[in-house]
């Protein structure tokens, strides 16, 4: 029953998203707008209702199953891949390697800059370093055994 209640909520939000997108003529996909609406509702409410939690857990844990039919659709585009496999593969391989290192480095740098400009104190939780967060989380985890 919980699962069905949660699913109804998700579908209701999707409907609201789709209707709003059409109504305002937005180019954004309806489900994405619905996701933002749900996120804002949760922030306002302050907690996740257990019904929503249970259906979300169930459908998100089997997320990758849903991509298969779309993935099989690639066989309709075999010819395109045959003609363009070289630029496509180079694009994917190169951009993935560079961005992995690049975005990790940016995150590290941003963190260092924060620490140089402002000393983290208890009054400024927003500027606490990521290292501290990591330690806190590890401590928290070990507290729970």
């Amino acid at each position: 029953m919980l699962f069905i209640n949660g699913l109804s909520v998700l579908l209701l939000y999707q409907l609201m998203g789709e209707v709003t997108v059409r109504w305002l003529g937005l180019p954004v996909p309806g489900p994405v707008l619905a996701m933002i609406m749900l996120f804002i509702s949760l922030v306002i409410k302050g907690s996740t209702p257990s019904a929503l939690q249970s259906s979300a857990n169930t459908i998100l844990s089997h997320l990758s199953l849903l991509f298969i039919p779309a993935g099989v659709g690639i066989m309709v585009h075999f010819e395109r891949l045959q003609n363009e496999w070289l630029p496509i593969s180079i694009a994917v391989l190169l951009s993935t390697v560079i961005t992995l290192v690049f975005s990790a480095t940016v995150m590290l740098l941003m963190n260092k800059m924060f620490n140089l400009s402002k000393k983290p104190t208890e009054d400024m939780p927003l500027n606490k370093s990521l290292d501290q967060l990591q330690k806190e989380l590890i401590e928290k985890e070990s507290d729970h055994g």
């Binding site: 699913l7 949760l42 997320l63």
Partner: peptide, 29 residues
């Protein structure tokens, strides 16, 4: 399976909300 992708996208709001504390602290970096 393709059709239920919609509600699944909506459901992504929940893990996003559950991690909101991490986001609040380190949102800038």
């Amino acid at each position: 399976l393709n059709q239920i992708l919609g509600p699944v996208i909506v459901a992504l709001a929940i893990p996003l909300y559950e991690n909101i504390n991490l986001l609040k602290r380190y949102w800038f970096a």
